[in-house]
């Protein structure tokens, strides 16, 4: 049996790096494309082709989520776990957990009809941010500047067939510098942190949208917040996003499906090696 199995559906730069760095560390790794491996749900034995420790690296949130559920039920340890992926992948659940654990986070509401969403938006004042509860790479995140925009965006959302698009996650627009901060937290340690500067033609900072990364040495306060945030979802490998506000830091997102090419280029920190070193510890135990 291999030491570790990396499950994937599209081999990105990150997965190749993890594979290479794992090999350098002496790990026997097998790569499993979940697209080509159906799994039985009614016979819950360990799969001898799959290592006890599984690193979940699918680009698709749902594939990774459900494959984690299956392998955990077979008895494998999956990083990140099903529950961590579920909680991080859903902004509504993430926000609830951050708030419950006293971690500062932007003021946010959930509304369950277009009419009540408009009321919440009016109450929060413009601009305001509307996000899909499950979404990635900043897609369909809208900064709404006035009531006309609010109505047209909500009307469009009402027309979409995915029922989750009619659950409105509405967040105050946080006054911040033109950047946010991404911390990469591996097993409770912030191993790298970057500013993510928004591109000139966008207010979003996602690297996938052209955001520019720059290394930062974070202070102890932010480090503590990031570690605490990763702990509330029991994440072993997570990108924690923070913003600088007049009243201190807020944590606004936890990314279980971590991409780290931009952070590697900006910092030179060998993030893949750090991750695989942590995984190697698990194999030993």
């Amino acid at each position: 049996m291999p030491d570790i199995t990396i499950i994937f559906d599209r081999l990105r730069w990150e997965e190749k790096e993890l594979f290479e760095k794992g090999k350098e560390l002496g790990l026997d790794i097998n790569m499993l494309d979940v697209k080509s491996e159906p799994k039985e749900l009614t016979n819950l034995n360990r799969d001898p082709q799959i290592a006890d420790i599984v690193l979940q690296r699918t680009i698709s949130h749902y594939r990774g989520l459900y494959y984690a559920a299956i392998l955990e039920n077979y008895g494998h340890t999956v990083i990140n776990s099903f529950i961590t992926s579920l909680l991080c992948g859903n902004k509504l659940l993430t926000t609830l957990l951050l708030a419950k654990n006293g971690i500062p986070t932007p003021k946010t509401y959930a509304a369950f009809s277009m009419e009540s969403a408009l009321k919440v938006i009016d109450k929060l004042g413009y601009p305001v941010v509307l996000k899909p509860i499950v979404g990635s790479w900043g897609r369909m995140i809208a900064k709404i500047n006035d009531k006309e925009q609010a109505e047209s965006i909500l009307e469009t959302r009402e027309m979409l067939t995915d029922p989750q698009q009619q659950i409105y996650y509405i967040q105050e627009y946080v006054k911040r510098p033109p950047r946010d901060i991404r911390g990469i937290v591996v097993n409770g340690h912030v191993i790298a942190a970057i500013y993510r500067y928004q591109p000139e033609d966008d207010w979003r900072t996602n690297i996938a949208r052209g955001g520019k990364a720059e290394q930062i040495k974070i202070d102890g306060e932010l480090e503590d917040l990031m570690i605490k945030a990763s702990n509330v979802v029991n994440a072993k490998l997570v990108g924690v996003d923070a913003m600088e506000t007049e009243n201190g830091y807020v944590i606004h997102e936890l990314n279980n499906n971590l991409e780290f090419h931009g952070a590697f280029q900006a910092t030179g920190i060998d993030i893949a090696r750090e991750i695989m070193s942590y995984v190697k510890e698990l194999v030993k135990n």
Partner: peptide, 24 residues
């Protein structure tokens, strides 16, 4: 997408379109 590489042969298939749930 590369399906397989072995003995000097490579098999390709059309890559999937970007999914709504892709990425971080």
């Amino acid at each position: 997408e590369i399906v397989s590489i072995s003995a000097g042969k490579v098999e390709l298939k059309l890559a999937e379109d970007i999914g709504e749930d892709w990425g971080e």
